[in-house]
Structures are given as structure tokens and as C-alpha cells.
């Protein structure tokens, strides 16, 4: 069978599907000062998994606000700088009007994912940290 670290080079999803791959990628991103990109990507996935129900409405609202505050509100943040202004105002609107939808971060997540796929993921595959691991 193919060793995990070779599968990580096949696609971003193969990398993000493996806990060791995530850990190594995050260490690399941390060195580059952009671990927030990965944290945000996973936060969006985790948020989407929270099914709307009467029991967790408050939690979903609190979580949506927390994601918004930490990654999107500060325009100088690494995540915020990679998200289109229209996408940011859409999320801001959802939070302000308390219209909490499981898909409200989907577009922002897609934009961050494209940036990772085009930029940090190829750099990771060429990095010392990955080459030493292999």
C-alpha cells in the first residue's frame, strides 16, 4: 500500500484526511505565520456539521459569532485578507441579523481552500519539513 506521506502529495483532500498529515501541514503553516488558514477551514467544516435544532440554536449563534470575530472581522488578519469583500459582508449580515445557516461560511471556506491549493499546499510539498518527514 502507498505510504500516507505519498498520498498527501496527491491532493489537498488526501492531506486533510489524515491526522498526521494535518499535524505536519499545520506545523509548516505555523512557521509561515498562517496556521489560521487551516484552522478556519476546519472551523467552517465543523460549523456545517452542527445540525440546526432548537437545542443548539444558541450554540450555533455563539459559534458563528466566534468564527466571525476571530477570522473575519479584523481586515488585516491572514484569513480576512484572502476573502472577497462581498463574502465578508454576507457573513457579517448573517451574524448581525442572526440568520444562522449551516452553509453561511461555505463561500469563504471555498475561497480559503483555493488559496491553500494554489499557494501554501504546493509550498508545503517542497518544504524541508515535508521532505525531511518523507
Amino acid at each position: 500500500p502507498t505510504p500516507p506521506y505519498l498520498r498527501w502529495a496527491e491532493s489537498l483532500h488526501s492531506l486533510l484526511d489524515d491526522q498526521d498529515g494535518i499535524n505536519l501541514f499545520r506545523t509548516f503553516l505555523k512557521q509561515e505565520g498562517c496556521a489560521d488558514l487551516l484552522d478556519f477551514w476546519f472551523a467552517c467544516s465543523g460549523f456545517r456539521k452542527l445540525e440546526p435544532s432548537d437545542a443548539n440554536e444558541e450554540k450555533r449563534l455563539k459559534l458563528a459569532k466566534a468564527i466571525y470575530k476571530k477570522y473575519i472581522l479584523d481586515n488585516n488578519g491572514i484569513v480576512s485578507r484572502q476573502i472577497k469583500p462581498a463574502t465578508k459582508s454576507f457573513i457579517k449580515d448573517c451574524v448581525m441579523k442572526q440568520l444562522i445557516d449551516p452553509a453561511m461560511f461555505d463561500q469563504a471556506q471555498t475561497e480559503i481552500q483555493s488559496m491553500i491549493e494554489e499557494n501554501t499546499y504546493p509550498l508545503f510539498l517542497k518544504s524541508d519539513i515535508y521532505l525531511e518527514y518523507t
Binding site: 486533510l16 484526511d17 489524515d18 491526522q19 494535518i22 484552522d39 476546519f42 472551523a43 467552517c44 467544516s45 465543523g46 460549523f47 456539521k49 452542527l50 450554540k59 455563539k62 459559534l63 459569532k65 466566534a66 468564527i67 470575530k69 476571530k70
Partner: peptide, 20 residues
Amino acid sequence: YKSDDDLLLKCIGSAMPKRR
């Protein structure tokens, strides 16, 4: 109430693949 950071960490963890 849990802090925002705690909530975020749990959310991020919930999206990660389970260890084999």
C-alpha cells in the same frame, strides 16, 4: 458559558478525521 476559544477548538476538532 464556555469561552469563544474553547468553542472554536471543539468545532475545529469535530471536523478532523478520526485517528485510525
